[in-house]
Design a binder for these strands. Structure first.
Lengths: 215, 215
DNA sequence: TTATAAACAGACCGGTTGTCCTGTTTTGTC
DNA sequence: GACAAAACAGGACAACCGGTCTGTTTATAA
C-alpha cells in the first residue's frame, strides 16, 4: 500500500508540456501577465524542472517564438500558400479558413505573432529580431508564390513584395480589429478589399508593363 | 532664507502630467511593464496624489485610452481625413506623413491604439470596449469620406466600409511590421498596394456596375 | 556494480508591485 | 475666521515575482 511514487525522467515531454502551456498563456494573457508560477501550476511542473529546461523567462519566451509561433505561421500561412493553385487563391483560402475557425470557436485570441510582436519588440532586441525573422519568412512565402504565378503566365503587373506586404499587413491589422471587437467579420471585409487589388495604374507595375510593351 | 516650501494645488495640471507620462510609458513599454512607481517618479508625483486622481492602475489606463489614444487617432487620422480632398488622397497623405515622421525620428514605437489593443483587449472587457470604440470611429471616418466622394461623383464602385476596413487594417499591420523591423519602409509598400485597390472585378462593386450597365 | 551527469524536486530570498491608510495642507464657501 | 471638502504627502503592507540554491532521483556508460 501507499504505492511509492515513481518518477520517470522524460525531458522532451516535460519541455513540450511547458512550451504548450507557455504558448497558450502568452497568447491569451501576454508575456508580462503570465507568471512562471501560473505556468508551473498549469503544466504541473516544479520550479527546478522549469529552470532546468529554461534558465530564464526570456529563454522560455524565445523558445516559444522560435519553435511555436514560427510553426504556427508555417502551418496557417506558408503551407497553405505553397499548396494553393495561385497566390491570390492561397490568400483567399487562408482568410476564409481563419475566419471560419474563429467563428466556429466563437472567440478571437488574435494572431500569435502579432500579439507577441507588439508586447516584446521594443522590450528586447533579441525578441524583436526573432519576431522580425518570422514576419520576413511569411512575406517571402507570399511574394515567392506571386513570382511563381508570373512564371506561369499569371499575375501580370503585380509587384510581388508589395502584394505580400499588403496581404500580411491586412491580415495582421484585421486580426487586431477582430480581437478587439471579438468579431471575425472584419477579416472577410478586408479579404474582399484585398481581392480588389489590381495593378491598373501607377507604380512599378505600370512602368514594367510599359517597358514590355515598348520592346 | 530656507524658503519654506509652498505647495500649490493644481489638480488639472497634475492629472495632465500623470496622463502625459502614462501615455508615453504605455506606448513605449506597455501596460504591464510600466509600474506605478516608475510613473510616479517620471511625473514627479507622490502616491497619494496619483491615487487621488486615479484610484487604480486600470482607471489610469482607461483614462489614457479614452482621452489620449482617442485624441491621437483623431489628430493623426480623422482630422487629416476630413481635411483631405478625397478619401484616397487622405489615406495617402497620412501614410506618407507617418512614414516621414518615423524616418525623421529614426525609431518606430508603433501605433498607440494597436499597442494597447493587443495587450489589453483580452485582459478586460472594459478595456476592450473602449478600444473597439476608437477603432470603429476611425473606420467610420474613412468610410464617410468615401461616401462623400461618391456624392461628389467620384469613387464609383468602391464599397466604403470595405475600403475603410482595409485601410485601417493595412495601416495597423504595417505599423506592426514597422515596429518589429524598426523600419518604416513597409508603410510605403503597403500604401502602394492600397493605391492599387480598384473595384474592377468581383464582389459588390462588380454587381453594382453590372446593374448599371444593364439598365 | 559504480561513477557520472542529466533530470527533477522544493524551499528560499531579495526585490518589486499595486493598493491602502493615516495625516497634513490647500482651497472654496458661508 | 470657521469649517468642510478637495488635494496632496508619504509610509506601510501583503502578495507576488523571477531567480537561485541545495539536495535527491533517474538514466547512462564503463
Amino acid at each position: 500500500m501507499a504505492p511509492r511514487k515513481k518518477r520517470t525522467n522524460d525531458p522532451e515531454g516535460m519541455r513540450r508540456r511547458v512550451l504548450d502551456v507557455a504558448e497558450g498563456a502568452f497568447q491569451a494573457r501576454g508575456y508580462h501577465a503570465s507568471s512562471l508560477g501560473d505556468l508551473m501550476a498549469a503544466a504541473g511542473v516544479t520550479g527546478g524542472a522549469l529552470h532546468h529546461h529554461f534558465p530564464t523567462k526570456k529563454a522560455l519566451a524565445l523558445a516559444v517564438i522560435e519553435e511555436r509561433v514560427a510553426a504556427a505561421v508555417q502551418k496557417t500561412w506558408i503551407d497553405p500558400m505553397l499548396a494553393a493553385s495561385s497566390a491570390r487563391e492561397g490568400v483567399r483560402a487562408v482568410f476564409e479558413a481563419v475566419a471560419a475557425e474563429l467563428e466556429r470557436q466563437g472567440y478571437v485570441r488574435g494572431c500569435p505573432l502579432n500579439n507577441l510582436a507588439h508586447e516584446l519588440s521594443l522590450a528586447d532586441d533579441e525578441f524583436r529580431l526573432a519576431l522580425a525573422k518570422i514576419f520576413a519568412g511569411w512575406r517571402r512565402a507570399i511574394a515567392d508564390k506571386i513570382r511563381a504565378d508570373q512564371q506561369d503566365g499569371g499575375e501580370g503587373g503585380t509587384d510581388p513584395d508589395r502584394f505580400a506586404a499588403l496581404a500580411v499587413a491586412a491580415y495582421s491589422g484585421a486580426m487586431s480589429m477582430a480581437k478587439t471587437s471579438q468579431d471575425a467579420g472584419v477579416l472577410r471585409e478586408c479579404l474582399r478589399g484585398l481581392e480588389s487589388v489590381h495593378p491598373s495604374s501607377g507604380g512599378l507595375a505600370m512602368r514594367r508593363r510599359r517597358r514590355v510593351l515598348l520592346r
